[in-house]
Design a protein around this nucleic acid. Structure first.
Length: 396
RNA sequence: GGAGGGGUGGCAGAGCGGUCGAAUGCGGCGGUCUCGAAAACCGUUACGGGCGGUUCCGUCCGUCGAGGGUUCAAAUCCCUCCCCCUCCGCCA
C-alpha cells in the first residue's frame, strides 16, 4: 500500500501520478474516508481518557463510568467502521508509477530501449522441436498443460541450474519456497484484492497456489524488522496461473500454460538504492539471455500497463521465430515500499529509526526460455548449458 | 487424525482482575573511571496512531499471538481462530 501520511501531505502529487494508472478516483475516495476516520479519533480518545480511573472507584463514580461506557461503545463502533472502510479503500490504491515509466495503458505504449542479436526470419514452432505431449496432458489435466519429456526435460533442468548458478554469482541466495500460501501473503504482495481471476484457490484449506515465487520471497520476511540490507534471493519454484482472463489468447503449444517453472530474482534494499537495484536486475537478466544467444529487445512498460504494486517495469522480449515477433520472457519490477508496507516489513535505519525497505523482483529464467531456444536454434543447445547436464541437441 | 503444553519488549523470563507498557537478567546505547581497554558503577533502551509545535520533542489514545465477550476496570477470566513445542497414529 501507499504511504498514507505522504498522500495526506501532498495529495496533488499523488493524484497526478496515480492518474497515469487510472486510479485518481481511488485515491480521492480513500482520502475522503480517511478524513471521516480522523474526525472520530480525538472524540474517542477523549472518552477513553475520561474512563481511566486509578484504583477502585468510589460508589458514586460508578454510575458516571457506566454512562461513559455506553457512550464509548457506540463511538468505538463508528470508529472501527470508519477505519475498516478507509483501510479497504487504501488497499485498492495502486503504487504510483515512476516518472520515467512512459505514458499509456497498453502493451504497445511500452518504450523500446534496445535490441540485441540477430533474429532468424522464421523457424519451427517449439512443439515441432521439443517433446511436450500436449494431447496426453489435455486428457488428464485439460488444456494449457504439457509434459516435458526426454531431452526437452533435461534442457529445462539445465536452464534452471544455469540461472541459479549465475544468480548466485551475483549474490542471490537460492531458495526453494512454499508454493501454497495464505491469503495474507497474496494480499501483501499486491495480488489481492485485484487479481483473483488468475489465482488457483484451495478453498478447503484456505490456501492459494502462487503464480510466482515472488509471493513467497516477499512473504518470507513479513512482519519482521530486518537488521541488514540488501537481502538478495533467487527462488526456484513451479508457478500456477488460471489464465481465466486470457481465453483464446496464445492457445498454441506451451507458450501460455497453467503450470510452469521459474527461477526468480528478489531483492530487499534501502529506499535510496532501489532504482540502482532495478538496473542491476535487468543487467543480470540480459547477461543470461546473452549467454544463451537469444535475440531480444528490452522495453520500458507503460505506466497504465503496470500491475498494482510496480512503479516501473522492464520486460525482456525474446524473438519467437514461429510467431515472427518479440514476446515477453522476463519482467523485472521495482515495487518500492508498496509490498513491504503491506507485509509489515521494516529495517533498522539508524539508532532509533525504523523504515520500510524497498522490494524488487525479476525473472531469471522460465520454461518459456526453453521454447525460445528450441525455436531460434532448431534443437541445437547452447554450449553454456552443456555443463548443467543438457544434451548437445534435442532429440524427440 | 488423537492427547497434552505454550505464545509477554532485541533475546531470556516474571506477572495470572485495578497501583502493569509490564519485575529481573542478558544484549544495545550514553556516561564515570583509564594513556587506552576490560571490569565495576550510574543512567538509558518496545511499537503504532491522533493532535500541537516540527533534524526532534510534547501530549493524549491503542497494543502483552489475532479477533470477540464478561467487568466501572483484563497481559490476567470466558469463547473462536492462528502459530510453536512434546507424545501417539499415518506417511514421502
Amino acid at each position: 500500500m501507499i504511504d498514507l501520511r505522504a498522500a495526506r501531505a501532498d495529495p496533488g502529487r499523488f493524484r497526478a501520478a496515480l492518474a497515469r494508472k487510472g486510479a485518481a478516483e481511488a485515491l480521492d475516495a480513500m482520502l475522503a474516508a480517511d478524513e471521516r476516520w480522523r474526525a472520530l479519533v480525538p472524540r474517542v480518545d477523549d472518552l477513553r481518557s475520561r474512563q481511566r480511573v486509578k484504583g477502585k472507584p468510589a460508589p458514586e463514580q460508578l454510575e458516571e463510568l457506566a454512562r461513559l461506557k455506553d457512550e464509548l461503545r457506540e463511538l468505538e463502533q463508528e470508529l472501527a467502521a470508519a477505519e475498516a472502510e478507509r483501510d479497504e479503500l487504501l488497499a485498492q490504491v495502486p503504487n504510483p508509477p515512476d516518472p520515467t515509466a512512459p505514458d499509456g495503458a497498453s502493451e504497445e505504449d511500452a518504450e523500446e530501449l534496445r535490441r540485441w542479436g540477430d533474429p532468424p526470419a522464421d523457424g519451427p514452432e517449439h512443439t515441432e522441436v521439443g517433446r511436450f505431449e500436449l494431447e496426453r496432458a489435455a486428457r488428464l489435466s485439460g488444456s494449457r498443460f504439457g509434459f516435458l519429456v526426454g531431452d526437452t526435460a533435461l534442457v529445462a533442468l539445465a536452464l534452471y541450474r544455469f540461472a541459479v548458478d549465475r544468480a548466485g554469482a551475483h549474490g542471490h541466495v537460492p531458495v526453494v519456497p512454499p508454493v501454497l500460501v495464505r491469503e495474507e501473503a497474496m494480499y501483501g504482495t499486491g495480488f489481492f484484492p485485484t487479481d483473483r481471476s488468475n489465482i488457483y484457490a484451495l478453498e478447503a484449506d484456505e490456501l492459494y497456489l502462487t503464480g510466482t515465487s515472488e509471493v513467497a520471497l516477499a512473504g518470507m520476511h513479513m512482519t519482521e524488522i530486518l537488521d541488514e540490507l540488501p537481502l538478495r534471493y533467487c527462488g526456484i519454484s513451479t508457478c500456477f496461473r488460471r489464465e481465466s482472463g486470457a481465453a483464446g489468447k496464445d492457445t498454441r503449444g506451451m507458450f501460455r500454460v497453467h503450470q510452469f517453472n521459474k527461477v526468480e530474482l528478489f531483492v530487499y534494499c534501502e529506499p535510496g538504492r532501489s532504482s540502482e537495484e532495478h538496473d542491476r536486475l535487468l543487467a543480470i537478466e540480459e547477461e543470461l539471455v546473452q549467454a544463451l544467444g537469444l535475440p531480444y529487445r528490452v522495453v520500458n512498460v507503460a505506466a497504465g500497463d503496470l500491475g498494482a504494486s510496480a512503479t516501473k517495469k522492464y520486460d525482456i522480449e525474446a524473438w519467437f521465430p514461429s510467431q515472427r515477433r518479440y514476446r515477453e520472457i522476463t519482467s523485472t519490477s521495482n515495487t518500492t515500499d508498496f509490498q513491504a508496507r503491506r507485509l509489515g516489513i521494516r529495517f533498522r535505519a539508524g539508532e532509533k529509526r525504523l523504515e520500510t525497505p524497498h522490494t524488487l523482483n525479476g525473472t531469471a529464467v522460465t520454461d518459456r526460455w526453453l521454447l525460445a531456444l528450441l525455436e531460434n536454434f532448431r534443437g541445437e543447445v547452447p554450449d553454456v548449458l552443456r555443463g548443467y547436464g543438457a544434451p548437445p541437441r534435442v532429440e524427440r
